[in-house]
Nucleic acid binder design. Structure first.
Lengths: 251, 251
DNA sequence: TAGTGGTCTAGACCACCTT
DNA sequence: AGGTGGTCTAGACCACTAG
């Protein structure tokens, strides 16, 4: 075995760019396999020891790489069972990708009612948010989300049609879209950025939510990114916040 | 040295409660010293090796405890220099406790203009938020915060006067209050919870911000907690969000 | 019982900072 | 030169899960 402490898994090119720690290289290699779909969501990864053999590093180094991936919620570790590629189940949606909670901070996944699913050419804003050429085909999904029996959120979701061909054509859009992206389109949402503003209800939105025109609404402007770092979804949510609020944690 | 792998640093009582890993026990012991002020913010902790000797564990176990504390931003580690108790400097305020950013996502700490600092008996809401008996003395600070030269936030801050005696009496309130809490009152804000809603400007707030009455505003309702886990500050911020937005990251 | 991740140790060496 | 945290290894044992 290679005795040199600081080294590379693959030989570096002549340019000799910034050297990364071994565990970071291992992490990048595993991430690459996740991106390439070598290991699909829900499947078990090889054991730490096996990965160590594969990469020519010790178990401890593999462990550090896997711990880092687990910290980003890309893999899930279970003592006695193994390490698994993270899936977008309802729990993940509820605790990681949905921050609206009820008065006593109780979490509850909203139901969804699809209003429409239309196709068109990306506007300048849409193209910018999705890193597409302007005019590319996009799908636009509109829906109302119901929290505690009350219509509380009006949402517009914009997707590249190239990435999600025929999405919504047969009107079978589930409540948690990220599961659909993952299972049917092999697109894994890894993280998202949200921009929050206060706005007021248009006549159309007020009607959908059963509130007064110009009532204050919380606007959540979300861009979701896939494993490879590219934006894959743009979502604009208008939330009624008299019975629910957006919860954030600062550390 | 003790050869038993799973053991306790201090002898357990007869009841034998849930056993924690050694590194978690070490972390709790270090945290206890931080709470008790044994090591003040900004000071250097003993080295990993020294702590290992003190607690009777290996350097690796101490390292895992310190890494966990660093992940919570309670200590800061510098290669070659040492491990230091985290301080509330402007960087921490900007990147961890202030989520309003400008249009191009640039961060900028707002200036502050104190409107008033008054004292009174805690209302039911205030008492609940600060875990005080109703009627306890509280200080209420009101200020306007200026972002990019424009008044953008009206803020009310409520503090227990027992915890922050005479705060603001001499009108010397700095821009970043958490530094003051830390230096003068030995209260370290360790984390905070925020609840966001949309609301609309009252006449008084509209006047302060130079906007129309009933204009939409983002309300941030923050409770800040000290190292020992108790609430120490309640803050209600009303933010104008046409030129700035609240930024959140989802993982 | 076998296999997995979780904990803990001991020791080596590296990278960085201060003196 | 000496001290610090950062990386990496090897090996032991524990805790949990499954067949």
């Amino acid at each position: 075995m290679n005795q040199i402490s600081t080294r590379d898994i693959a030989p570096r090119s002549a340019g000799a760019p910034a050297r990364q720690p071994l565990y970071a290289q291992v992490k990048a290699l595993i991430l690459r396999r996740l991106i390439d779909g070598v290991w699909r969501p829900g499947t078990m990864l090889p054991s730490e020891i096996q990965l160590g053999v594969d990469f020519g590093v010790s178990q401890g180094t593999v462990r550090k790489a896997l711990d880092a991936l687990a910290a980003e919620n890309l893999v899930v570790r279970h003592q006695g069972r193994g390490t698994f590629v993270a899936e977008h189940d309802t729990d993940r949606a509820l605790f990681h990708f949905f921050h609206m909670v009820g008065e006593n901070a109780e979490r509850q996944l909203p139901e969804s009612q699809i209003l429409s699913c239309r196709y068109g050419k990306a506007t300048a804003t849409e193209a910018s948010r999705l890193a597409l050429p302007k005019g590319d085909s996009v799908a636009r999904i509109r829906r109302v989300r119901i929290l505690g029996g009350v219509p509380a959120i009006v949402e517009t979701i914009v997707l590249s049609e190239a990435l999600f061909p025929e999405i919504g054509r047969d009107g079978d859009l589930p409540n948690t879209l990220y599961e659909l992206y993952e299972r049917r389109y092999e697109v894994t949402v890894a993280r998202a950025e949200e921009r929050l503003r206060a706005t007021s209800a248009s006549a159309a939105v007020a009607d959908l939510l059963g509130i007064a025109v110009a009532a204050p609404l919380l606007e959540i402007d979300r861009t979701a990114f896939s494993l490879d770092g590219g934006p894959v979804e743009w979502r604009l949510s208008l939330c009624e916040t008299t019975t629910h609020y957006y919860q954030a944690e600062l550390v």
